[in-house]
Design a protein around this nucleic acid. Structure first.
Lengths: 97, 97
DNA sequence: ATAGACAAGTTTATGTTATAAACCAAATTA
DNA sequence: TAATTTGGTTTATAACATAAACTTGTCTAT
């Protein structure tokens, strides 16, 4: 009846990061930080987790002389995100019970 | 951009309990336990939290000689549930960015 | 040239939380 | 009456989210 919710995605900040990346395809650390309102520390940790799970790719480059952390969603991540949404519906779509 | 998610509802089991109660209006502990697949201990704790927040009412009665714990959603709880759904949309509705 | 401020993160520490395991009391069954 | 089941509660633990502190390097003003 209730589908299990991917614990990796069922966390406010990680979900926000994934949501951003689904639509932007590629985003820099400071941009994500600004859009989500997260602290850098928290964001860093959550990006690591998403990356470790293979949900996103992290590329460390330079923008001029400044370090620049680029994030991209992976096919695995996109699939997980979509499945998470499907699972959520089993909780929200009250009429289907 | 991303609306904050009520931490009380952003938890798998509590969300499932609320989801059930939205449609049933009243449910017994064993029924909720069966529908959610939760352990009794976990369910007991989460029901306490929802009850402490005023999201549900818990009535302890007897069914014949056996204790019977009845749960009902409150207007506050229903409102919180609906607002949670609205907030979630800001994460899921990718097109709106 | 160097002191101070700022940018971009990372690491560490802490308090919360979800969850399961252990427990309890009463009723039913063997 | 001993064992089992029902209906939970309490306690313990491990994971988690988050913020605070720290690091490394750049830019700016003196």
């Amino acid at each position: 009846m209730f589908k299990p919710l991917d614990p990796l995605l069922h966390a406010e900040l990680r979900l926000a990061v994934m949501s951003l990346l689904v639509s932007t395809e590629e985003a820099e650390f400071p941009y994500i930080k600004e859009q989500t309102g997260a602290t850098a520390g928290n964001l860093s940790v959550q990006i690591d987790k998403l990356s470790a799970a293979g949900y996103i790719e992290v590329e460390k480059t330079f923008k001029g002389k400044k370090p620049c952390t680029l994030c991209r969603i992976t096919p695995t991540g996109l699939k997980a995100f979509q499945e998470y949404i499907e699972a959520l519906k089993s909780y929200l779509d009250v009429s289907s019970k």
